[in-house]
């Protein structure tokens, strides 16, 4: 049983790390602000869920697991809100997402 939980937890941790890593690459490589934000929010969403889920499995039925779940709830509330606020601020200051936009890098 312990082995199964261990393997499951490692799978979750690795998958989460991969998502965070991809999110990081995307944040650096994507051409425009909104696409970068999309990549960055990958870290907040699925990356957080997978990594903290893996850590909860490592912790077992302890107080630490409860704390990790509390952190997960907090991050799931704040992360997307922060992404929304960022996108909204960009939109309000006149940055419109356009189709076939000229990339900032190539300009």
């Amino acid at each position: 049983m312990t082995t199964v939980i261990d393997i499951l937890s490692w799978v979750l941790l690795l998958a989460g790390s991969i998502f965070v890593f991809i999110g990081g690459i995307g944040t650096l490589r994507f051409p425009t602000f909104y696409t970068r934000l999309h990549a960055a929010s990958l870290t907040d969403g699925i990356g957080t869920i997978l990594i903290l889920g893996g850590l909860v499995l490592q912790a077992g039925w302890t107080l630490a697991a409860f704390k990790l779940l509390a952190i997960l709830v907090f991050l799931l509330l704040t992360g997307p809100t922060a992404a929304y606020a960022l996108a909204n601020a960009a939109d309000m200051s006149g940055m419109k997402p356009e189709e076939n936009e000229v990339s900032e890098v190539e300009k």
Binding site: F74, L77, T78, T81, Y84, A85, S93
Partner: peptide, 25 residues
């Protein structure tokens, strides 16, 4: 910054709801 500072983010529903949820905690 093109927002009126005295009004805050009152017209933004999402940050307001989440903020109201989180501030007590």
């Amino acid at each position: 910054i093109p927002t009126a500072p005295s009004v805050g983010l009152r017209h933004h529903l999402i940050p307001r709801v989440v903020g109201k949820l989180l501030i007590p905690f």
